[in-house]
């Protein structure tokens, strides 16, 4: 082949490679990262809503579950667990609650993001009901009890005796102004 068409061919191929890498960065890397974290349990990300299956409650084990609540950055709410720790048996369903109070004079919308430690417990901590599945609208001065129902899986690794569930509350009022009006 003479040089000119050969150069064109190469130009097309290399541009395609560059385009493929761009697509890879935006559409492949982020899902891959999430998948990796999910499979390995790294990052303490928990799954979505869990449908309880009938399992035997393992009364021989006591698992301490600790709750931590944090406000992100400038979030002005009062936000804390009503019980800081509970003892459960694996397989047993347990309901607890968090308290949230919007101290400002402004209607706000919050979103809680969960995280479980140790990492290898994340896959065995199931939430059948959680306020974190939705965002939390609180009118000015309003307070609420936020419900959580969870089950610790009987397959929880034997080395784990304490599980810490932490929530970070983000202020998403500005971002989803449309959603706020829908929720109210």
């Amino acid at each position: 082949m003479p040089a000119r068409p050969k150069n064109r061919m190469l130009l097309v191929k290399l541009t395609a490679l560059a385009a493929a890498m761009f697509v890879f960065a935006i559409f492949v890397l982020p899902p891959l990262y999430d998948l990796f974290c999910e499979i390995t349990g790294i990052g303490g990300k928990t799954d979505g809503a869990y449908t309880a299956v009938a399992v035997e409650v393992d009364t021989s084990r006591d698992i301490e579950v600790q709750f931590v609540a944090t406000n992100n950055a400038t979030m002005p709410w009062d936000f804390y667990p009503i019980e800081e720790r509970v003892i459960v048996h694996p397989g047993e369903s347990r309901a607890v609650a968090f308290y949230a109070h919007n101290r400002t004079g402004q209607d706000m919308l919050g979103q809680a993001i969960p995280n479980v430690l140790p990492n290898n417990a994340a896959d065995y901590f199931h939430k059948t009901e959680c306020f974190c599945f939705n965002n939390q609208p609180l009118a000015a001065g309003e307070s609420a009890e936020l419900d959580l129902v969870f089950i610790v899986d009987p397959d929880l690794p034997a080395s784990v005796n304490t599980v810490t569930l932490s929530y970070t509350m983000f202020d998403i009022t500005d971002r989803t102004a449309v959603q706020v009006s829908q929720v109210q």
Binding site: A19, M21, F22, I26
Partner: peptide
Amino acid sequence: LVAVMPVLAGAVTM
């Protein structure tokens, strides 16, 4: 460069 500059472009696009 052809392999990673698009990844940088992807990062700033996100």
